[in-house]
Amino acid sequence: MSNRNGEGVLSKGDFGEVRLEGVTKVYEKADQSQRVLDECTFSVERGKLTVLMGPSGCGKTVLINLVAGYERPTSGRILIDESPVDGPGSDRLVVFQETALFPWMTVYSNVIFGCQVQGVSRGETKERAGHILKKVGLYEFRDKYPSQLSGGMQRRAELARAMINDPKIMILDEPFRGLDAMTRQLMQEFYVGLFEEIGRTNLFVTHEIDEAIFLADRVVILTFQPGKVKAEIEIDLPRPREFHMLASPRFMEIREQVIDLLYEEASKAFAAGSKAAYDLMGAIVARKGACEKCE
């Protein structure tokens, strides 16, 4: 339980660290068992943004559900600040792949939900909510219901709802999925700015290669079936990050490296007949072409 009342509303507090040690997840189906994650070992460092990548179906969402505590690993351990994960807790906040705003609450009620259930005082709740809603640009929309917002606004509302709790760890599963390219780019810029201001520990899943590199301190790439850690790449681009970095030589270099690693796995997933993997392949091939041209 983290319920600190830092001086700032978005506190620069004690963030957590996640360690996965030999995490394996096997799903038993009717007569066969599927090994989704196999001996995953890596850590999500304190105050850093770690991006998890891998082809569709490689077990990213499963891994996140384990870290969040919704499911348990078949074997191996997940440690948060040296203590093993035992069910969900408000020290870790999850922004899901699909929108999980409560449809029956206004934006404001959604955002203050965490404060209310944790018994934060009214005055403080109000102050924090006002601050965060302004931060994500939804203050004017606080009395709307989620269904009345655009996709990008819904995403921001969800980020606000998560951040108001000042969690030690933020876990985001493709939070910008389904947004149009322009909105997505704005959200990335917005999020990277927010991260750089607060510096919270982040575990961030995405399919988008540029998004991954632009945001990350480190990219962890999973293999396809079973999901193992294939590579960990440190992203040494300077912070604060800005969009023109996407054209910098260093960015291109890293991207080339990431693409080569992903390409292998994506083709495996493609051979396994996954439609989503096909889409990823398409994207990678297009980028490879673009990269070769620009050299």
Partner: peptide
């Protein structure tokens, strides 16, 4: 995911 979101928020 709504129930999960709620419990992750401390409900």
């Amino acid at each position: 995911s709504l129930k999960w979101a709620a419990s992750s928020l401390g409900a």
